[in-house]
Amino acid sequence: MKKYLLIILIVIAGLQASAQTGLSKGDDAPAFKTIDNNGNTLDLKTLLKAHKSVVLFFYRGEWCPYCNKHMQQVQDSLQLLTSKGAYVIAVTPETNENINKTIQKTHASFSIVQDKGYAIMKTYKVNYVLDESTVAKYKSFNIDLNKGNGNTDHVLPVPATYVINQSGKITFVHFNKDYTKRASVNDILQVL
């Protein structure tokens, strides 16, 4: 029963993301420079010089079963992605402590970025704010976004995926406000 209520909450949250549009195939990918979970500096321009492409995806948090399932699928296929010259980056609003929980659950070995201030989420047009009633419903399921993200503004990303080629163009977009829908690894592999 609790699982079904969580799914209903996820659908409600998806309706709140209606203002966001994401970026489109063919758009220039917004540049960013950040630090990943291992303390490595990630500069999109530098990564694109060293790799054929960057697979950039956004996830909501370690509490999200759909995020964890997708991250596990990416991890399971990581060698296939990297063998095609891709560098994989996951972006999240969650704290470093919760990123570590995500890694424990998914065994993710690719770069994960805590997007403090939501700079990357905003430039890729995937950020949205949960309303207070949805936040309260999440809390009833022991999902505390204040603790999970280390703030009180309740910003989450639409779990979008972008593939960026060496010229800095977006060659693949998966942007779906339905949180149960994620980019398949096979779809990503087809554009690499």
Rank of each mutant, 00 (worst) to 15 (best):
M1D: 02
K3S: 14
L5T: 07
L5C: 04
L6T: 09
L9H: 09
V11W: 07
A13G: 10
Q16I: 08
A17R: 02
A17K: 02
S18V: 05
S18M: 06
A19E: 13
Q20C: 11
Q20L: 08
L23Y: 00
S24A: 15
D27A: 07
P30M: 00
T34K: 14
T34V: 13
D36P: 05
N37D: 15
N38Y: 10
N38K: 15
N40R: 05
K45N: 13
K49W: 03
K49P: 03
K49I: 04
A50D: 14
V54R: 09
V54F: 05
F57A: 02
Y59W: 11
R60Y: 03
G61W: 07
E62N: 12
C64Y: 06
C64M: 05
P65V: 07
Q72M: 11
V74Q: 10
Q75R: 08
S77W: 00
L80P: 05
L81K: 12
L81S: 09
S83P: 03
I89K: 09
T92N: 12
E94I: 01
T95L: 04
N98I: 01
I99F: 04
K101H: 08
I103G: 04
Q104E: 11
Q104A: 15
H107T: 10
A108K: 06
S109A: 13
F110W: 08
F110Y: 14
S111E: 09
I112A: 06
I112F: 04
Q114F: 02
D115H: 03
K116Q: 07
G117W: 04
Y118E: 11
A119W: 02
K122D: 14
Y128Q: 06
D131L: 09
S133R: 11
Y138F: 15
F141T: 04
F141W: 11
L145N: 10
N146Q: 13
G150V: 03
G150D: 12
H154V: 00
V155Y: 07
L156C: 05
L156W: 04
T161H: 11
Y162T: 03
I164H: 01
Q166H: 14
G168H: 03
I170F: 10
F172A: 06
H174L: 08
N176V: 01
K177P: 10
Y179P: 00
T180E: 09
T180R: 15
K181R: 02
A183H: 02
S184K: 09
N186Q: 15
N186V: 02
L189K: 00
L192M: 14
